[in-house]
Design a protein around this nucleic acid. Structure first.
Length: 277
DNA sequence: CATATGTCCTGAGAGC
DNA sequence: TGCTCTCAGGACATAT
């Protein structure tokens, strides 16, 4: 489930595509129900054909392909999507192919087993406004002040609130658990009870956890779905403190037993000894 | 308005 | 062995 570190790893891996001219954008034959591509593939292909990729960006969990005329193609992997340069795990779940020329790599592929991912092409004049309407500040840039301003009045528990992409973009279920563990904050604590020093701790922990995860090229869970652009797994799963460790001893205090609870229909993992309200 | 729930999807694993 | 059932999770639509 690609979150910010996995998507940033994709972005970095895709850098060899910068400078390419797009020969075509096509939807490979796919047996299952096709994913959402906006606008429809024919128009997207028409709008991008012949354009040059001038840069690769990222906002939250989306990879952004910037083109020479200002258009921006956003790929949102959601649960199982990966953007690749190498051959994907199967041909069946290939969703999009960008055929390139003028660079060392022939194509960019979007592969998505469950098909929940999306591809969206923004026109130059609408991009900033549309992306800002959907996404808050990127998690790597977030400050304690911004968190308090955006979430401080909410009665929601802090963990589900951190998953709100309009509040802060890039944090998902796995990293929310790791961030609150490092912050030593109980995931059930309501936002409106979080003090300013605690918001600052959360912001600092967000940067620390995400940067370390990026250094390890993200997390590949036991289902093995997440891979980098060359089909290699990430390494940060070996450093998880709480995620998917229910019933195991806390690696830090060595006395707490990691608990799993459900918040807004998602698993939350935490150490009841280290994380206090 | 803020918060909660349902929905999409596939494959792994449980249980019979 | 092989079937059916449940669950997982990100973002958005719909409901409370």
């Amino acid at each position: 489930m690609p979150e910010l570190p996995e998507v940033e790893t994709m972005r970095r891996g895709l850098l060899p595509a910068v400078g390419a001219r797009l020969l075509s954008a096509t939807r490979p034959p796919c047996e299952r129900r096709p994913i959402q591509i906006r606008p429809e593939i024919k128009r997207l292909d028409g709008d991008l054909r012949g354009r040059q990729i001038t840069g690769l960006g990222r906002r939250g969990k989306r990879v952004l392909f910037h083109f020479d005329d200002g258009q921006v193609l956003a790929i949102e992997p959601r649960m199982t999507g990966i953007v690749m340069l190498a051959d994907p795990p199967t041909r069946e779940h290939l969703r999009l192919r960008l055929e390139l020329s003028g660079v060392s790599v022939p194509e960019v592929l979007f592969w998505d087993r469950r098909g929940l991912g999306t591809v969206t092409l923004y026109q130059a004049d609408g991009f900033e406004q549309q992306i800002n309407a959907r996404l808050g500040p990127d998690a790597l840039e977030i400050t304690g002040e911004a968190l308090k301003q955006r979430l401080g009045n909410s009665r929601r528990p802090v963990k589900p609130a951190l998953l709100d992409q309009q509040a802060v973009a890039g944090i998902g279920n796995l990293y929310a658990a790791e961030i609150l563990f490092l912050s030593k904050i109980d995931p059930r604590l309501r936002c409106n009870r979080v003090s300013m020093p605690k918001w600052r701790r959360i912001a600092a922990a967000t940067h620390e956890v995400l940067k370390l995860a990026i250094e390890h090229e993200g997390s590949t869970l036991s289902d093995g779905t997440y891979r980098n652009v060359l089909n290699d797994p990430g390494g940060f799963q070996n450093y998880h403190r709480v995620y998917d460790r229910e019933g195991q001893t806390c690696r830090v205090c060595r006395s707490g037993i990691i608990r799993r609870i459900v918040q807004t229909q998602r698993s939350t993992f935490f150490c009841p000894v280290c994380q206090r309200r």
